[in-house]
Amino acid sequence: MLRLSNLSYRAQRIVIIVSFSFIPIALLVTFGYLPVLGMFKYSFTDWNGLSPSYHWVGFDNFKTIFTDEKYYEGFINSIYYFVGSFVQLAIALYFATILSFAVRGKSFFKGVLFFPSMINSVAVGLIFLFFFRPEGTLDSILGFFGITNPPHWLLNPKIINISLVGASLWRYLGFNFILLLGAISSVPSDLYEAAEIDGANRWHQFRYIILPSIRRIVSVTLILSISGSVAPFEIPYIMTGGSNGSNTFVIQTVKTTFSFNKYGMGSAMAVVLFLIVVLVTVIQKTFIKEEKKNDRH
């Protein structure tokens, strides 16, 4: 039986830190970082993904990535997804905030806004095929509002990326929304009450209470969606396979790795992507940290 003095709390501290971190870190290392080591290793080889043998090729793969346009052109389209990630966060934040206050039919709205994220991705390709095709769902909606002669959403190379970002937004908004909703519910209610007495309006409550309280979640969402915008994959892969000017770096990586059996090259591309994303994250983190430093203990 533990009769606890200060000293045994110190011992407990160690026990609890080690035992509580053991499994999470073991899983993280085994399935997260061990494979990354392999990825770095193969990036210096010409391995084809199958053969027992391969050759070391030094930095050849990396040189190719930065000299062959085919490999780096995918990054240009990231700009669309980058902008899209801010739009997505803003909309998610808006809905999460208003649905945290009294709204009639709250559960209904929450459920419906989250609905697109619940759909199995097998159906997503079909949904947007019919959504974007001429005289499809979108054109019919626009026609209802008197907009005739809409553009070809996927055929027009100037619009295709915007269409795909829109589809991604539809798909992933719900996750951001629920996450932020959860985060907002952590804000102690007495804070609102106090603010209400002080006559703060909803915007002030959002700006000075909610946002600062959940900035940690907002920042991690931002990090993940911005790093995600460097490597958009699911929606463009399903919808276009990267054709018609919608290619992304990750789609190119998949093609290189599996269609051409260039596993070494694909690994090198993944390494480049990883380093870029890490760099973006580090830059972003320093910005957010400087904005507000808050000590909890």
Binding site: L28, L34, P35, M39, S267, M269, A270
Partner: peptide, 20 residues
């Protein structure tokens, strides 16, 4: 470590994860 793990592109690590 947890943050950066979220940023690993899973495409080419799949073979190694499978082996593990």
């Amino acid at each position: 470590a947890f943050l950066f793990a979220a940023l690993i592109p899973g495409v080419t690590t799949q073979v190694i994860v499978f082996k593990i």
